[in-house]
Design a protein around this nucleic acid. Structure first.
Lengths: 155, 155
DNA sequence: CCAATTTAGTTAGTATAGCTAACTATATTT
DNA sequence: AAATATAGTTAGCTATACTAACTAAATTGG
């Protein structure tokens, strides 16, 4: 209340924006899901594989934390990836409890093919925007990426 | 190739943007999902309920098409909503095969409460952006909403 | 008017993806 | 050496997606 009208208006704007952002994210992913399905792998596996490919090998726990899921969930996701030959478990030499996960060559290949398909699909629809509009979108994405980076796992 | 360098550069930009957009959407929804869990209902039910509340009652098939899922999936989602007293099935008087689904008062209430929680949560994190940055985000959302609107269900 | 077809939804069975609780195995601390 | 802490897995529950096969109702064609 002490902040006056400008602050109140800002809060309202942020709320509206939050709602629209949530809705847009839901509907966008629904569209793209169908393209990703062509890889034969579900979204959780593709996302985990993507982390392994772009951030390099890491332990089970770190992968779970990065993907914001509980350890048992990541255990299953990795089991699925391993069974399809897309990732490998390697026991850590220093600590026998730790398990390093890494993408196989086949995993890298599948990810890149799926990525290409998805990008072409999404891009074909974003293509209706002008250069200037794409720039605005890129700017907004940069901001959003910053918000997500600073967003602590606990809340 | 006939378009020359400017066009090629644009295509590359769009591809990168598409990839970042996809990733941001995935991670954003992962964060928000945890707030939605407080309602006691999953994302598919909340999304279907949201359609019923904001677009009004509709048939099973139309609801499935709107939510971009197959009829059996929507049958189960509605069964869940009905069991919790959040939606109701009403048989169509003109065509006994058709079933109208509508949100109950309790469904509307639950949706609005969840919506408030989710918005407050997302907004609290978007709050770190400046007024100018929020404006950029709003602009980008407008563009994205346009793209989604023009995106035919089939592809 | 009745048989064939089309349309609307449901049922059954499968897979993925999330969770908690309880477990094993290894390290660390006291 | 015993107690505790940490890393992952296993088991079992729920939700959400799919396809295939079904029921029931409406429409169409002889």
């Amino acid at each position: 209340m002490a902040q006056g009208k400008q602050k109140n208006r800002a809060v309202k704007d942020v709320a509206g924006l939050a709602d629209r952002l949530h809705s847009a994210a839901i509907h966008l992913l629904r569209r793209v899901r169908k393209q990703d399905a062509a890889t034969g792998e579900g979204p959780a596996r593709l996302s985990a594989l993507s982390v392994l490919v772009f951030a390099g090998p890491m332990t089970m726990g770190r992968l779970a934390a990065t993907e914001q899921v509980k350890p048992p969930t990541m255990s299953r996701i990795v089991a699925g990836l391993e069974q399809k030959g897309l990732a490998q478990r390697v026991t850590d030499s220093k600590d026998a409890r730790r398990i390093q996960i890494r993408a196989t060559a086949s995993g890298v290949r599948l990810l890149q093919q799926g990525r290409k398909k998805r990008i072409e699909y999404l891009a074909s629809h974003l293509g209706q925007l002008t250069e200037l509009e794409l720039e605005t979108l890129g700017e907004a994405l940069g901001l959003l990426e910053g918000v997500l980076r600073d967003w602590p796992p606990e809340g």
